[in-house]
């Protein structure tokens, strides 16, 4: 049974468990979808994580008990394919200057760089949550043999659009940022667009994606096309 936790008097967390588990995440997303359908007045933000769903609300507009009852009802919603989730196909140029840690990761995992790329592209990854930075997606889960601890020395500036892995997770840095994950490649896809009020982040929690490997010249072409505004983000959707 999920439990309700008050995060002060303006937020309520529905917690399904205390660890990272795909079954918790599925319940979180199903609850989120049901809550969106309930369209409660006074809700300001609904934040899914791996294991919980937090609703930020204005207690002068929405009674806490009414929200609590609604959340517990929504938690009963059956887990099904989310109508709000999108599947994406994200091109990545692996290795070389774009993925400086690819060879080291392959060595640590005891496989070839090609095998690492192949495994990453064969895994359908789920967007569990966005956090740390605006639009930073925590993606999971990686095959057991590809799970490595973070780098002992973080980089002070990871280039924007770098695909990185650490532990069971992958991520793409939407902005230049310090970071301790292993950099495997780079995507030309724009992950965050501040001018788009309706959907500033390409990914939403609950979405899933696959990577496809592209050569450096194709990366350059797509990168230039994205910069010139010639590419609609819908191009990266999978049917």
């Amino acid at each position: 049974m999920p439990r309700l936790l008050d995060l002060g008097d303006g937020a309520l967390t529905l917690e399904f468990g205390d660890r990272i588990a795909p079954e918790f995440s599925a319940k979180v997303m199903a609850t989120r979808d049901a809550l969106a359908a309930a369209a409660l007045d006074g809700v300001t933000d609904v934040v899914p994580t791996w294991r919980s769903l937090t609703v930020h609300f204005d207690p002068l507009r929405l009674d806490r008990q009414r929200l609590a009852d609604c959340l517990l009802r929504c938690a009963q919603a059956p887990v099904q394919k989310s109508a709000l989730a999108t599947r994406w196909q994200i091109p990545v140029c692996f290795g070389g200057e774009h993925g400086p840690d690819l060879n080291a990761v392959a060595t640590a995992a005891g496989r070839s760089p090609e095998a690492v790329i192949e495994a990453l592209c064969a895994t359908e990854l789920r967007v569990f949550l966005l956090g740390f930075l605006p639009g930073f997606p925590y993606l999971g889960e990686l095959p057991e043999w590809l799970r490595l601890p973070r780098r002992s020395t973080p980089r002070s500036a990871v280039p924007a659009n770098s695909l990185a892995i650490a532990g069971a997770q992958a991520a793409i840095y939407p902005w230049v940022s310090p970071g301790g994950w292993h950099l495997l490649g780079r995507t030309p896809v724009r992950l965050f667009d501040l001018a788009n009020e309706n959907r500033p982040a390409l990914f939403a929690p609950g979405d899933s994606l696959r990577f496809t490997s592209i050569p450096a010249d194709r990366y350059q072409q797509l990168h230039a096309a994205v910069a010139a505004g010639e590419i609609n983000a819908d191009q990266w959707r999978l049917p």
């Binding site: 933000d45 609904v46 966005l130 605006p134 939403a204």
Partner: peptide, 11 residues
């Protein structure tokens, strides 16, 4: 900036 916290955007 409410309404974007699920995307990792602070308030």
């Amino acid at each position: 900036r409410p309404g974007y916290r699920h995307l990792g955007m602070p308030l």
